[in-house]
Design a protein around this nucleic acid. Structure first.
Length: 242
RNA sequence: UUUCACAGCUA
């Protein structure tokens, strides 16, 4: 069974969904009962390409096989609907999850934050955060990074900064990707002063990507002199282009 | 063996 699950995953990664379904039939004919791993993997494969009808029939199949949906099943569906911009379907799924008495997990909430962040739904993000604390779930670095990107998207710079502070208070060290997310937010909104401050970095040591983000923003705004200057600064910081 | 942000390597 594990072998089949691994093979199915290979099909999914290769985007050979056709082969995947064939293999599933074959394993059922061979007397193997697909398990929760099998179904979750298949759901995700369909979800990633927005094949919602296929997802529905997979769910039906699951029921037929008496395999109970778990939180990962729901996470997978929430993510698929959310990424496709079907927010209503996503929230519907969330309700179904509650009705099935399955508690949202950290990853469920991270998924929601990510999707609401991309959709610039700051209000919804706050609601998710509220339920997170009600559930007694602690944010992780993933949560914070998703939040920072989401707030940056919506130009909520104050909230972004607060997040960074909260991260420090929680004893979570920002990573380079955290810094780059903040850089992206400031740069793309023309807040060059703030962006430049990031380079002199009390947060993390910038990498070449950090510089590239700012460079791009300078050029977009016709600040060519500043851009040239930035390259010199990069050089001085000992960053070697790859 | 399955889901969520990013980063790195393959380049």
């Amino acid at each position: 069974l594990v072998t089949y699950n691994i093979l199915l995953r290979a099909c999914a990664q290769a985007r050979q969904l056709q082969k995947m379904e064939e293999l599933l039939k074959k394993m059922e004919l061979g007397g193997f009962q697909p398990d929760i791993f099998t179904f979750n993997g298949i759901l995700d494969a369909h979800g990633k390409v927005g094949a919602f009808e296929a997802m529905d029939s997979t769910l039906k199949n699951m029921r037929k096989c008496k395999v109970k949906a778990d939180f990962i099943t729901y996470n997978t569906m929430i993510d698929a609907y959310g990424k496709a911009g079907h927010i209503e379907k996503m929230e519907e799924t969330l309700e179904k999850m509650a009705m099935a008495n399955i508690k949202p997990q950290l990853s469920t909430l991270n998924t929601l934050l990510n999707i609401y962040g991309a959709a610039k739904c700051v209000v919804q993000m706050e609601l998710v955060l509220k339920s997170m604390s009600e559930l007694g779930i602690r944010p992780t670095i993933i949560t914070y990074e998703v939040l920072i990107k989401g707030y940056g998207n919506s130009k909520c710079f104050d909230k972004m900064q607060k997040c960074l502070g909260a991260m420090g208070d929680a004893g979570i060290r920002p990573k380079i990707s955290t810094l780059n997310a903040i850089m992206e937010a400031y740069s793309s909104n023309g807040l060059f002063k703030e962006a430049e401050n990031l380079l002199d970095g009390n947060i993390v040591v910038p990498t070449s990507l950090t510089y590239c983000i700012l460079y791009k923003a300078y050029l977009k705004n016709g600040l060519n002199a500043k851009a040239d200057n930035l390259l010199r600064k990069m050089d001085a910081a000992g960053i070697v282009p790859s």
